[in-house]
Design a protein around this nucleic acid. Sequence first.
DNA 1: CGTTGTGAACTGATTCACAGCG
DNA 2: CGCTGTGAATCAGTTCACAACG
Lengths: 271, 271
Amino acid sequence: MSQQRTGHEAGITGRVGAVTPSTVPDFPDLPEATVARLPEYLRALHHLAETGHDTVSSEGLALAAGVNSAKLRKDLSHLGSYGTRGVGYDIEPLVGQIEYILGLNKRRAVALVGVGNLGHALAGYAGFASRGFRIAALFDADLTRVGELINGIAVRHIGDIPEVVKSEAISIAVLATPAGAAQAVADQLVAAGVTSILNFAPVVLNLPEQVDVRKVDLAVELQILSFHEHRKSARGAEQAKAVARGAELAKAVARGAVNGSPVATLGEVAA
Amino acid sequence: MSQQRTGHEAGITGRVGAVTPSTVPDFPDLPEATVARLPEYLRALHHLAETGHDTVSSEGLALAAGVNSAKLRKDLSHLGSYGTRGVGYDIEPLVGQIEYILGLNKRRAVALVGVGNLGHALAGYAGFASRGFRIAALFDADLTRVGELINGIAVRHIGDIPEVVKSEAISIAVLATPAGAAQAVADQLVAAGVTSILNFAPVVLNLPEQVDVRKVDLAVELQILSFHEHRKSARGAEQAKAVARGAELAKAVARGAVNGSPVATLGEVAA
DNA sequence: CGTTGTGAACTGATTCACAGCG
DNA sequence: CGCTGTGAATCAGTTCACAACG
């Protein structure tokens, strides 16, 4: 079964590309955690470039990308050296390198299956077009939707998947079907030649392991936040006690509660 | 600054809830990685219950949730013991325990800000309602949208955020505004009392650390897949060589490429 | 002098493998 | 006997702290 990257998986394991002992030239082995952060760095860099910067320090870029600077430097060090000591990173070549690594040189064609509520919105999502992708085909099982034009492209029947995926040379698909249909559609996509799937349906797909699957489950994201809300309120009584002991202590506790770092136990700080 | 959980963060650190030396009764310390998987277990368990199961083995549940059974058992062991050796887990009490931990006993009220392309779809997303949440308020900055009814609830102006968030006791918000507006809106939400935000805008929010933020960036997900596509094609030549040495070897390589686990180098397998 | 790049230490998560139990 | 629950081992990722360098 293909690995299901849930989007908030903690122990993403392994080093991508570590297949052969010697690395393929110009394609370094990258920790999966680093790969997952590169798009965020890229976005931050584009923003910096647009606001007139030529260069940025690890501290500055880290701030813009929401990570700490040590992590950022370690991540970028995997790509080769694009920084100047005492100065920072040259934005333009760094953007180029990250785009190259992410395979964003050429605009990638993407198929979207399931033009319901969510799929319709995704089909019109401007962020895909502006960040390296082209929605090249839309599919739906519902014949009453077939032919509908969304953002200038016509919805086709899922029976056309094999033909269109081949003719458009599509390797990435977005799955926004109901849960019940997702597995069957995914099988068809893979049979047609798709090798990466972004799955919005709340099911675990069972696919050959060479297919990369990422799963985005909107309700799951809210449930994780709900856990944190529950925890915050369950700890309300404890927190109240802590606050009573002074503002500094309360801050430490809050930091501990959010970061989860072992900042201090109440006993230690109070002592 | 609040921790920005990007949804595919690898080194999610810390143990949630480890504030006091002694754990609050009925609220165990859970590794963040475990918390992030509980919603998936819950979904799988509901599905099993609906298909007539009373009990499930760690192996069976792991399969349904897309993880391995050791991880599943370790995760569930943190919640207390709900399994019977030689048999498996009782689904019903386990569902109850996970729902309790996730704070899904009571249906949580959620505000959604930004009723554009994506926000509109999220407002109508049935998965929220069916999995513990109630969209209690919709907001937009655009006066021409204010008053519009979506799924029976009226869009209000963002100026009403303080009033509505308080009256509806909303603690979780979904942010689906354009990037440029996100920070200002987030500040208003937090000022009004929101303590958890699900952010779809492609910006890093800068918020007090007691606010939990999760970020979902749809283009980032595709870019990560794009990386894997790029890698697969960059390795095409190497793979071809490997395949030539036999099917078993090719399978091992593919597994290694997807899982990233150090399955074998070509040399080792060939030897 | 300021900032990168990186070994070393540390932390958290996963996996192994088996004792313990129904 | 089969399956859970869990210590021990391993592994990946983060953070520290500082040498190297422009």
